[in-house]
Amino acid sequence: MNTIPLDLQIVNALAALLLLLSFSMLSQRRIVSLVNLLAMQGLLLTVATLMVAWRTGETHLYLSGLLTFALKVLFLPWLLHRLIRRLEVYWDTEPLLNIPGTMLVGVLIVVFAFGLAQPIAELASETTRNSIGIAVAVILLSFLMMITRSKAMSQVVGFLSMENGLFFGAMSTTRGMPMVVELGIALDILVAMLVLGVFFFQIREQFDSLDLHHLESLKEGD
């Protein structure tokens, strides 16, 4: 354990913090703080990307780090904050499972994810392959968040954090995807976010609320 170089240690620490942030998102009831946590996750991702870029000397990773910063730390949180203000949704309702329960399920998910990632990590040659387990865990935890929350807003935050996990996994294990793919994903997220923003307004207009349980019944007036 003494042979790990410092930059790798930092990437590992960032990975652990990413996991921690996922848990704090799971436990957060206020949507504004949820968005702030998402921005923090983006920031960690940026730092991790830049660290990996510096380590491997891949120039396009610097670019993707800057893209991450612009999109996930500045633009998307700004957009979400604006939506929150205009839709006036500040609190999520009590999640499906109470919060300590969700956390315990989350711990089980982390164990599952680490077990799942073990054989994959053994195939990877990079030294950052430890991050694979954490990336899978972040993705599954975001899934859990999307499942247990009922407000559309927190589900979108879960979706974005899932993308963060995917990005982290790809970045840390494969020295980054080709630039075209990365640009494509970034654009996808952007467009998805804008479309979802429009959806929010439509949903609220129809149901006077952003609670997605209203969408579960097909007919009106049940």
Binding site: F23, P100, M103, V107, F114, I134
Partner: peptide
């Protein structure tokens, strides 16, 4: 529960890394 979670996460991260 949060404290317990943090401790368990510490343990898991330790085991993973």
């Amino acid at each position: 529960a949060t404290a317990f979670l943090l401790a368990v996460l510490g343990l898991l991260v330790r085991l993973l890394q």
